[in-house]
C-alpha cells in the first residue's frame, strides 16, 4: 500500500466553482474547475483555504465526492456554529474562485484491483468519499459486489438520494434512519451496531474490504463490531470526523 506514495509538492491554486448542487437543506455539492489538477484516487480529500478581506485565513479539509476522471467536486455540510462551511454552502456561487490544494491521503482509497466484496459504511456526510468509490467502481466497469449501509438522521438528510435510489448493478444500498422515519418506512430505524451489521454486512468469511466513514461514535461502533465478529482489522479502513472536524 505504501507503493502509492505521493511525493509531489502540493501547491495552492485557484479553482472556479462551476456548479452548486443542493443535496439537502444543509448540504451542497460544489463542482470545481481546477486548472492544474493532477488527478485523484477515490476516497482522497483536498484542502480549502479562505482568505477574508481583513487577511484572516482559514483552512479545512473536505473529502472529494467525484470519481477520478470526473470534474473535482466536494460535498459540504453546513455546521451552524462553523466558520468555513456556512460560507461554502451559503455564500459561494457558480463562477466564484476557491483556493485549494490536493489531493491528500492515500490510505482510505479504493482501486478496482483492491477487489472486494466492498462493505461501505457511512454515517451522515461520511457518505462523501464512499460515493467517490461507488462512482469509480461504476466508471471502471468493476463488478465487485458492494453493500452500502448508510445511516442518516432523517430521510431529508440523505445525501445523493436520487443517485443512491438507482444503484449500479451489483450495488445494494441499505438505509437506516436514526432519528425520524417517514410514514410507512420499511427500512431500518436504529443506530448502526453489531446487531444491525450482523443482518446487513458481509460475514467475515466473505473477507470483505470495509470502509467506514462518519462521526467518531459511528465509526467506533461499526469498526469495533466488525473486528469483534471476526473481520481482520487490516481489512477495515476508517475515516473519522469529530464534532468540529469539518467546520
Amino acid at each position: 500500500m505504501a507503493g502509492t506514495a505521493l511525493r509531489r509538492r502540493l501547491t495552492w491554486q485557484v479553482a472556479k466553482v462551476s456548479a452548486v448542487t443542493v443535496e439537502t437543506a444543509s448540504v451542497r455539492t460544489l463542482t470545481l474547475d481546477v486548472p492544474d489538477w493532477p488527478g485523484h484516487q477515490a476516497g482522497q480529500h483536498l484542502d480549502i483555504r479562505l482568505t477574508a478581506e481583513d487577511g484572516y485565513v482559514a483552512e479545512r479539509s473536505y473529502s472529494i465526492a467525484s470519481a477520478p476522471g470526473e470534474p473535482v467536486a466536494i460535498t459540504v455540510e453546513r455546521l451552524d456554529d462553523g466558520e468555513v462551511s456556512p460560507y461554502l454552502t451559503d455564500e459561494l456561487r457558480a463562477g466564484d474562485d476557491l483556493e485549494l490544494r490536493g489531493p491528500i491521503g492515500g490510505y482510505f482509497v479504493w482501486e478496482p484491483e483492491d477487489g472486494g466484496p466492498l462493505l461501505l459504511l457511512a454515517g451522515g456526510s461520511g457518505i462523501v468519499p464512499l460515493r467517490s468509490i461507488l462512482r469509480h467502481r461504476e466508471r471502471t466497469g468493476s463488478t465487485v459486489p458492494v453493500r452500502l449501509l448508510y445511516s442518516s438522521r432523517t430521510l431529508d438528510d440523505v445525501i445523493y438520494q436520487a443517485e443512491l435510489d438507482q444503484p449500479a448493478r451489483g450495488v445494494e444500498v441499505i438505509h437506516t434512519l436514526t432519528r425520524q422515519q417517514p410514514p410507512g418506512w420499511a427500512g431500518y430505524a436504529r443506530r448502526a451496531d453489531a446487531a444491525l451489521l450482523a443482518e446487513v454486512a458481509w460475514p467475515a468469511d466473505a473477507m470483505p474490504l470495509a470502509y467506514a466513514c462518519g462521526p467518531t461514535s459511528f465509526v467506533e461502533a461499526v469498526s469495533q463490531a466488525l473486528v469483534q465478529s471476526g473481520h481482520p482489522p487490516e481489512r477495515v479502513k476508517t475515516e473519522r470526523f469529530g464534532a468540529t472536524g469539518g467546520t
Binding site: 482568505t51 477574508a52 478581506e53 482559514a58 466558520e83 460560507y87 455564500e91 474562485d97
Partner: peptide, 11 residues
C-alpha cells in the same frame, strides 16, 4: 495571491 473570499469573516 489568494483570492479574497467575499462574505467570509472570522467567526
Amino acid at each position: 495571491m489568494s483570492p479574497i473570499a467575499r462574505g467570509f469573516h472570522r467567526r
